[in-house]
């Protein structure tokens, strides 16, 4: 048993719950870090690893649901809510905001572990996607300004001639830029480049059709 490559964070103000969860998760061989309040969790140094957050709804400083909303903007581990008295509106809200599960105390071993594993898998996927995205972004950042102008024109499907006219450069020069873009962005084909552009959310600003035809 080589030890898990993920961490389970537990935020609950009740010491007994924290102890019990740590014990239970430890018995499943999971690494656990527990916090008594949302503030302590936010402040804490968190290693760059897949994670899951088990969050109590009733917290002394801020409500768990509010914490969820506050950290929604940044990268955070998927959340599994636990509550002493779950009501439907809170659970609906929590799920809508992206919670993995909403468990009412007392909850069963299987439910909790299932939820934790789902959350960790989700976080792994998120992390992988975020890593790809970061690589693409790095490549895009390497482009020269002129290449960044050329990229949207190319992925819009304009012919080289059209794109060159658009930028006021010769077709040959455009072809050089296009080749550089393809190589810098590690795109095997134009279709590949289009997909990359989509992931980078580069807008398609030009239609291949002449503007006069649109009416």
């Amino acid at each position: 048993m080589s030890g898990p490559d993920f961490i389970v964070y537990v935020v609950d103000d009740d010491m007994r719950i924290r102890e019990a969860l740590e014990e239970l998760l430890a018995s499943h061989g999971m690494r656990t870090v527990a916090f008594a309040s949302a503030g302590a969790f936010i402040e804490a140094e968190k290693p760059d690893a897949a994670a899951c957050l088990i969050l109590d709804v009733e917290l002394p400083d801020i409500n768990g649901l509010d914490l969820q909303r506050r950290i929604a903007a940044g990268e955070h581990p998927p959340i599994v809510f636990i509550t002493g008295h779950g009501d439907i509106p809170s659970s609906v809200r929590a799920i809508k905001e992206g919670a993995v599960d909403f468990l009412t105390k007392p909850f069963s071993d299987a439910d909790l572990i299932g939820a934790v594993e789902t959350a960790v898998d989700l976080d792994r996927a998120h992390r992988a996607a975020r890593a790809d995205q970061a690589a693409l972004r790095r490549r895009y950042d390497d482009l020269t300004p002129r290449e960044r102008e050329v990229l949207p024109l190319v992925v819009s499907g304009l012919l080289n001639k059209q794109a060159a006219a658009e930028l006021g450069i010769s077709e040959v020069t455009l072809q050089i830029h296009r080749r550089n873009v393809m190589s810098k962005m590690a795109a095997a084909s134009l279709a590949d480049l289009v997909r990359i552009a989509q992931r980078l959310e580069i807008p398609i600003t030009h239609s291949r059709r002449p503007s006069g035809d649109v009416s």
Partner: peptide, 21 residues
């Protein structure tokens, strides 16, 4: 319910842990 569930949840979780240990 909260007051009662809180220790109950701990009991249940600990029971599972104990069982697993």
């Amino acid at each position: 319910a909260h007051e009662v569930n809180q220790p109950l949840a701990a009991v249940v979780a600990n029971s599972h842990a104990c069982h697993r240990w």
